[in-house]
């Protein structure tokens, strides 16, 4: 499959390419501009080809069912991700509850092993910060899904009146621009050591 095509409902490549539409329109325009001995049959054929392509595109958009993506799939996905955040937050809370119970009992633990247990409990606490990190990453995904929803809404607003089976939407924008984007992927992040060096340059 070439880069500028998508599969149709049968998994087959569409019978046209995007450039074809432009080619046909340019061909029609040039024939009309030149004038003179323009064959009406030829013009008719060009326009009929264009009509077929438009019909096929409409069919593909309808098959993709953007209305269902917007109203069902994206809300379901965001709800699931919200549930993941909620579940990990609850589980993390339970882990930290247990850690605090252990910490409160440390005075009853033999002095030679108390520091070891204390250090390990601290590590558990530190590791619980995964919930914050994963929560921010999941929030990024939810924001991305919301952006996709907005784009689909815009698409439906434009095409909804013209294609049967599609409905329009509000096209509202979301997400605060004042916030950072959350944690980078490891290959794009700078380290604490890098940051310390950077800050030292200010001193």
């Amino acid at each position: 499959m070439s880069g500028n095509q998508s599969l149709d409902e049968n998994g087959d490549e569409p019978s046209y390419q995007r450039g074809q539409v432009v080619d046909i329109i340019n061909s029609v325009i040039s024939r009309v501009q030149v004038g003179g001995d323009v064959s009406s049959d030829l013009l008719y054929k060009e326009l009929r080809d264009l009509k077929d392509i438009i019909e096929e595109a409409r069919s593909e958009i309808t098959f993709a069912n953007p209305d269902e993506i917007k109203n069902k799939h994206i809300p379901t996905a965001t709800d699931e991700l919200d549930a993941v955040v909620g579940a990990t937050e609850e589980a993390t809370g339970t882990i930290m509850d247990s850690c605090e119970v252990i910490q409160s009992q440390m005075e009853h633990v033999a002095s030679e092993i108390a520091p070891v247990i204390g250090a390990e409990v601290t590590k558990i606490f530190e590791a619980c910060s995964f919930q914050d990190i994963t929560g921010q990453r999941i929030t990024k995904v939810i924001n991305t899904l919301n952006q996709i929803e907005v784009k689909i809404d815009s698409l439906l607003s434009v095409l909804g009146k013209k294609i049967p089976g599609l409905s329009g939407g509000s096209g509202e924008e979301g997400e605060s621009e004042s916030l950072l984007n959350g944690p980078q992927m490891p290959d794009k992040a700078i380290t604490q050591v890098d940051i310390d060096k950077l800050l030292a340059e200010f001193d």
Binding site: E126, A127, S129, F130, D132, I133, Q136, L180, N181, G182, P183, Q184, A189, I190, T191, Q192, D194, I195, L198, L199, F202
Partner: peptide, 24 residues
């Protein structure tokens, strides 16, 4: 959790004393 150079500089210019990257 976001460790971009420009953000560190922005924070420093705003008067931050130190900067910690999550997880820590």
């Amino acid at each position: 959790a976001e460790s971009k150079t420009e953000n560190v500089i922005t924070a420093k210019e705003a008067g931050v004393n130190n900067y910690i990257v999550k997880p820590f």
